[in-house]
Simulated assay, not measured.
Amino acid sequence: MPEEGEEESRLLLRFAAPCDPALIAKWITYQVINTERQEWRCGHEAAYRYRQREGGLDVPYEHVEPEGAFPLGRWLSDQRRAYRAGTMTGERAAELEELGIVWDTADAGFATNLGAARAYYELHGTLAAPRGATILDTAIGQWLTNVRRPSGLGKDPVRAERRVAQLSAVDPDWNPGALGWTVDWQRHYTYLTQFLAEGARLTAIVPGVTRHGDDIGRWLAIQQRNWDRLNEEQQHRLGTLGVKKAPRARKAAPKTATKSGPRAGGEAFQKGLQALAQYIEREGRLPGRSAVEELPDGPHRVGIWVGNQKARRDKLDQTQRAALAELGIDWATG
């Protein structure tokens, strides 16, 4: 059967004078309309087949349907563009919605990741996930890192504000950087809070006490020792848990320095120790060999410094070994 308008266009072409531009233009219009209708019908049928086969219309842009080699992914992208521009008819929009089309794929992707974030929070009690954390086959740590970055929630201020509210509903402290501390600090603080809520004594949380692979005891010791480096809110939060600043250590009796190694109070050793403590407090782990830490007097190659101390560990005195062990250097206790 001829398509709608085909018979009329044939008559127009048959009886039109060869040079009649008005009739020729009308015939071309009919042809364009018919082609567009055919493409819509092909696209709708391809979308229907895809949904029946895959259970939804989450179609990659480059996807081509095998039957008829129809570029379904590109076609659906064109339909979303027409919908946003307001050039799509209500009837067509309703047909696509009946098939389950998602008009805003960005919001759909955010919703999927937000669901994974809720699952992570239920397990850990925080959204301060390490960058490599995964859950429900989602790289949730990297996603959270991305959304914390400037414009990570999108350039549309209304959408960004809505997404902030959604994340805050899961975890009010989802973005520790806005509070003045790191993701690692927030995660360790949360785990410490959980230990205490479960009935653990603060004095029992010593180096080696871990939760989800993080050494909470060592982190706690660092917070107490570096109390003055914490901001007011950090001190307040720890203070409500009963954490206090570590008492000032008594000065050890002066010892005769050996010629084979650095003195415990030697400036080079103390600078290295300071850089190491600062790095661990910020990163929550020991530095790699290439790590460099900034101190007021300039950069210190803290990773190489730790390696050098390990190489001369037999020459370190007891005070130096104890200072390193307190920061979590395992070989210093051997």
Score class of each variant (00 low, 15 high):
G152K: 08
A253D: 13
H44Y: 15
R225Q: 12
D215H: 05
N34W: 07
E54K: 15
E267S: 13
V292G: 02
R289N: 11
P287K: 12
P150Y: 07
R51Y: 01
P262A: 02
V170F: 05
R49V: 01
Y121M: 06
N231Y: 07
Y189P: 00
D214G: 03
L286A: 07
T258L: 13
W75F: 10
A85N: 14
T333M: 12
R263S: 14
Q194W: 09
K26L: 14
V183D: 04
R289I: 13
K255F: 00
Q234F: 00
A169V: 02
F15W: 15
R289S: 09
G132W: 11
M88P: 02
R229F: 02
K255Y: 01
L241A: 03
T105Y: 10
G73T: 10
Q31K: 13
R225L: 01
A178H: 08
A264T: 14
A47P: 02
A311M: 10
A117V: 02
A165C: 03
A85W: 11
I304W: 10
R92I: 05
Q235T: 09
I216H: 01
G141T: 06
V306Y: 06
Q194A: 09
R131M: 01
Y83S: 11
L316E: 05
W103N: 06
E283S: 07
T190K: 12
G303I: 11
E91I: 12
A178E: 13
L167V: 03
H44T: 12
L276F: 09
G242M: 12
G199W: 06
M88H: 03
G109R: 15
K244R: 15
Q235F: 02
E198M: 10
L316W: 01
T193P: 00
G86I: 09
S168P: 05
T112C: 06
V102W: 08
F15T: 14
D173W: 09
A200F: 13
D297I: 04
Y191A: 00
G272N: 04
D156H: 01
D58R: 14
G177N: 10
Q52N: 14
